[in-house]
Design a protein around this nucleic acid. Structure first.
Lengths: 122, 122
DNA sequence: CTAACTGCAAACGTTTTGCATTAAT
DNA sequence: ATTAATGCAAAACGTTTGCAGTTAG
């Protein structure tokens, strides 16, 4: 576990903003000016493999990263583009429904809501 | 509505395979050899705006397109990469739950299941 | 000592764009 | 006639990779 990887993990874990790779890169660069974007991507991949973070890539050309690897749902504001965590319960029941109805083996599901967030409504 | 757009729409509407832009391009090219990939992308954008098709971009670097604009859920096989339509009912109730709990205005939601499909299990 | 990781820069695959030409209404 | 759409090619975008040098265990 290199200094770079530690710092990247720390940056992701200490925000709820579901940042992009580039945002993470900029953050890390403030204390490690020589880090490269390639290293950031490589480590994001490794941390994802390890299950320490989650990659989100709903409805846009770039990925966002979530330092909370626990299953949970998201809401994305189509105006300010921010992604919010939701604390509605994760339904394991839905997966069973799909398994029973369709015969596929379901191991995971993702649920994302879209609309205008609390702040942008006003 | 140009011949190109008509053909593109027809190709998407007549498959359940949730094809990529390039697959659509190859299909259209069989009858219109001079069509360009740029035209395919431009028309996919327009058809999406009009609500005639849906763009899917869960968990991969390229988008897929769905000729069924009705709200419905999907299952993606992580082995063969195919995307299946599901006919479990779309829950409007879920959106209300998020609205009431969080105060966001929810206009849409997307639900995607992952696992090993019926065919790949054997 | 060795295996894993780094920074750099070039390459990649998908999508978008500018532009001069052509087709649709 | 006017506006919209096309084909082509180049550019843009986020991401990945090869490589030679460096660091961690």
């Amino acid at each position: 576990m290199t200094k770079q990887r530690q710092k990247i993990l720390q940056v992701i874990k200490s925000t709820k903003s579901h940042p992009t790779a580039d945002w993470i890169y900029q953050q890390v660069r403030e204390t490690m000016p020589n880090i490269s974007l390639g290293t950031v991507y490589r480590n994001l991949g490794i941390l994802k493999e390890k299950g320490e973070i989650i990659e989100l890539n709903y409805g846009s050309s770039y990925s966002r990263y979530d330092g909370n690897p626990h299953p949970h749902y998201h809401f994305k504001c189509t105006k300010c583009e921010r992604v919010f965590d939701l604390d509605i319960p994760v339904s394991h029941q839905l997966q069973n429904e799909v398994m029973n109805r369709e015969g596929h083996l379901v191991t995971e599901h993702r649920l994302e809501f879209y609309g205008i967030c609390k702040d942008c409504r006003n």
